[in-house]
Amino acid sequence: MYREQLMKKKKNKIAGLYPMCKLKMLGMYVILIILANIVQIKELPLLLIPLSLCIPLIFVLSGQPKDYLSFIKMVSYFVCFVFIVQALLIKGNDPVLIWQWKFLHIYRGGLDKGLTLAFNILNFAGIFYWLFKTSGYQEISAAMEQSGLNHKAAYIFLSTFKMIDVMRMNVYTIMDAQRARGVETEGNVFVRAKAFIPIMIPLVVNAMLEVGERALTLESKAFSVKCEKTIMIPATHNGYEKIALTISALIVLCAIGGYVLWLTR
């Protein structure tokens, strides 16, 4: 089933790139973000706004526009909150009033701070989310192992994600079981807080007791033997890495050129 999912992703040329290549592209995007922070239009970092619109574009080009929607759903509340608080509350050193409605004032200093924080969060978080949504965890851990990381570290990374799914299912089972016993999970804060311990302890102790068995299983498959390891489904190059890197390097060079022009205008 994992193989089928991987094939579906590999059909798209951008989503199918080698994970390390995507990491390099992420680094170049970070350079763009830094440049956009430095350039000020009307003393405001307005370039961050069009840059943050690049992220949905990248998601659409990778063939996963739905993931962008879920990303926006996750961060929009937080970003709006940050922006509103900064814009309304901060005056700056020499307050220049920009907008006013009854008791609400927006000064230039606050607008600057709010724009910077909100759109930096959108940009940085978005590009990281893109990296982890377009390549599966298994692919990333395989790529990490191929580029020379210790296989134990790669195993920890991969098994963390598996473990979370397992534990999440166990939480609901244990919660139902404790509810059947009469533990109250609804009510005021103290009642709900009391329910936390009877859920947490069985969950953890169960998982800890399984560790011994899992260690045996791994040892029986020669996990700690010092030899070359074979990877069942290795991360593959799809042949477009060089083109992708060249294009993104060109964009970064153009941006740096534009920045130099802006400096010497």
């Binding site: 473990m163 979370i164 534990m167 939480v171 709900r192 807080a193 947490m200």
Partner: peptide, 25 residues
């Protein structure tokens, strides 16, 4: 070896703990 297997569990405890907190508000 045992610790290597415990780290993922403890990360999961952290994440799930955070989720239970959100579930119980």
């Amino acid at each position: 070896m045992v610790t290597l297997l415990t780290i993922p569990i403890c990360v999961a405890i952290n994440v799930v703990g955070d989720q239970i907190v959100q579930l119980l508000k």
